[in-house]
Structure formats: C-alpha cells, structure tokens
C-alpha cells in the first residue's frame, strides 16, 4: 500500500496487466510518442503522460502509436479483441467519439448479441473527459450518457486512485467491451493504492459517507464534490450518505435505492449535459421504485444545457461546484 495519484494508479494497472498477460496491448495516438522521429522515444506517454514508461517494458509491438485516425483505432482494437488480443485502446478525448462512434456503437457493442452470443470482445477503451481545464467545447465534455444509452458496452467512471486501478484491472480482464472514463481533473488526486494487483467488480457502487439526513449520489469527479459538501454539512450537525456509482453500465440499482431510502432526501450531482443524463435516469429509477420513501423532491445539480464555455469565469459558472451542491442540499434539508 502506498500513496499514488490517479494517473500513477492507471499506469500501474496497465503495467501489471501487460506483464501478466502478453495479449494486452496499448493502442492509440502518442501513447508512447516520438514514433518515427530521431528524438526521444516515449516522448509523451499519452497526451497527459498516463501511459508513460510502458514503452521501455514492452516495446513498440505492444505499445502501439497510431496515426490520428480514431475510426481505424477503434475498429482495429475491436477486431483485435474479437480475434484473441486484449487491447486497451485510447480515445484521447471522449469528445473525439464523434469521428469513430460507428465502430463502438454499431460494431463492438453489437458483436455479442448480433452474433448470437458467440463473440467475445475483451476490449477496453480508455478516454479522458470532463471540464475544468479551460479546454473549451470540443475537449471538455462529459459524454458518458451517450455510452450508457448503448447496450453491449460497460461504462466505468472511477472517482479516486484506488478505484481507478482496481476498475481498470477489471476492465482489462473483463470479456466485454468497456469504456473506461478518466476525468482530467482527477489525474493528480492521490490516495492509498495497494501495490499488488486487484480488481473491483463492476456494478458495485461505493458508499463513501454514511448519514441520516441527506443522500448525495455522484460519479467520477462529482464524488469528491459530494464528499466535501457532506463534510461541510457535518460541521453543521447534518450527516450525509454519499454514493459513488463507480460504473454507470452496469448500474448498481440496489445501492442507489438503498442510499436514497436511507435519508429520503436525494441530491444527484452529474457533470454531463442535463437532458437524458445519469441524474435524470437515476431520478426516474428512484421515483419508479421507492417514491414513498422520498421526503422531498429529488435535486439534480448539473451544468446548464449549453456547450462547455472557454472563458474561466464562464466555465466555473457552468460546472457543478461545492457551493451549488450545498445550496441544493439546503433547499431540501
């Protein structure tokens, strides 16, 4: 056990799984970097350095730098998974799904069902998402609802280093296609992470706080916001339950209902666009299954229905924040 950042935890999971299974290959743009140059090899290790260092262990045969060609990357990774490799493909920013979604939506996600249960596609797609880096409309989106909408793929949104390593290990070992979504703002977050390999099963949400007065449900980066608000409320004598969803497909419906029924007051914090997002989905789930346990209307803290703005004050206004979550909580407490 030692203190590691989210970035290091992801890197360690890749390193350990690649050592354990020679069928694991990493594919993507600049995942090593410097290909074809006379300069430094492994120059980047991914655009934010997450895959740095893998090259020296596994060489270019297993750390495969590609051209900027997302459709071919996703297709190649799917086909490789279908025929015996266990690829980890990187979609640099989730926003780029627009140029390769067919290979995810119509190919990978459908193989198993369409082929009558005979296909095995152990594919992991790692991708970066989320706002806060002043990266503007095409590099800041939080597009997981687009993936949860599609049956046949699993969607993972780790909120901390421990979960990042365990869930990525599970993603790689899992025999279904998985989208593993890394929030850019979390890469430098540190936490205790075992040095050994371990895997966290999918569909098991995590309670990070337990309380009696109000329930917060978050995913990815918003879990941290929920925890901080819970700690603030505690100083004011109100205790909170916080649920970290961990995976959005499969969704741990039992824990969502358990967390909601525990207090009867629910605030869901979701960084994705507000129409048809995870917050609306969970609200519907709670209303449909345990309406009588609610003591107040469900609160959803989400961005407005606009693209992600560039200007710092505007982006700050756009994103869910502790202040917004706290004031939403106080409206129903």
């Amino acid at each position: 056990m030692s203190l590691k950042t989210y970035r290091e935890a992801i890197n360690e999971a890749l390193l350990q799984e690649m050592k354990k299974d020679e069928n694991v290959v990493v594919i993507g743009e600049d995942v090593a970097g410097g290909a074809g140059t006379n300069g430094e090899q492994d120059a980047w290790g991914g655009v934010l350095g997450v895959t740095k260092g893998l090259l020296k262990h596994f060489g270019r045969e297993r750390v495969i730098d590609t051209p900027i060609t997302e459709t071919a990357i996703m297709g190649m990774a799917s086909g490789a998974a279908l025929t015996g490799l266990r690829p980890v493909a990187e979609l640099m920013f989730v926003d780029f799904m627009g140029v390769c979604f067919d290979q995810i939506l119509n190919q990978t996600a459908k193989f198993r069902y369409m082929f009558g249960g005979k296909a095995v596609t152990p594919l992991t797609i790692r991708t970066m998402y989320g706002g806060g880096l002043r990266a503007a409309s095409q590099h800041s989106q939080c597009l997981y609802p687009m993936f949860t909408h599609v049956p046949g793929i699993k969607v993972v949104v780790p909120s901390n280093p421990y979960d990042a390593k365990g869930l990525l290990t599970q993603s790689i070992r899992d025999n279904d296609p998985v989208i593993f979504m890394e929030h850019k703002n979390l890469y430098d977050l540190s936490g205790d992470v075992p040095d050994e390999s371990y895997s966290i099963p999918f569909g098991e949400a995590n309670f990070t706080r337990e309380g009696k007065d109000i329930t917060f449900i978050g995913m990815g980066q918003t879990v941290d916001i929920c925890n901080k608000v819970a700690d603030t409320l505690k100083k004011e004598g109100k205790t909170s339950t916080v649920l970290d969803l961990r995976t959005l497909s499969p969704l741990d419906e039992d824990s969502i209902l358990e967390a909601s029924e525990e207090t009867g007051k629910v605030v869901i914090v979701d960084e994705s666009y507000p129409r048809c997002n995870i917050a609306t989905d969970i609200s519907a789930l709670i209303c449909q299954n345990s309406f009588d346990s609610l003591k107040a209307g469900i609160k959803m803290v989400t961005p407005p229905h606009t693209p992600v703005p560039f200007s710092p004050p505007l982006e700050d206004l756009y994103l869910p924040s502790e202040e917004k979550v706290l004031s939403a909580a106080k409206e129903i407490l």
Binding site: E196, S197, Y198, S199, N206, F207
Partner: peptide, 17 residues
Amino acid sequence: INRDLVNEILKFKRIDG
C-alpha cells in the same frame, strides 16, 4: 457490521492471490 467494515474486507479479498 457496517459498510466500512465490509468494504475493508472486500478490499483485502480483491487482491490477486
């Protein structure tokens, strides 16, 4: 038994080996 206790044991049990 509360959730944290169960969680601690799960963390242990998940480790390879």
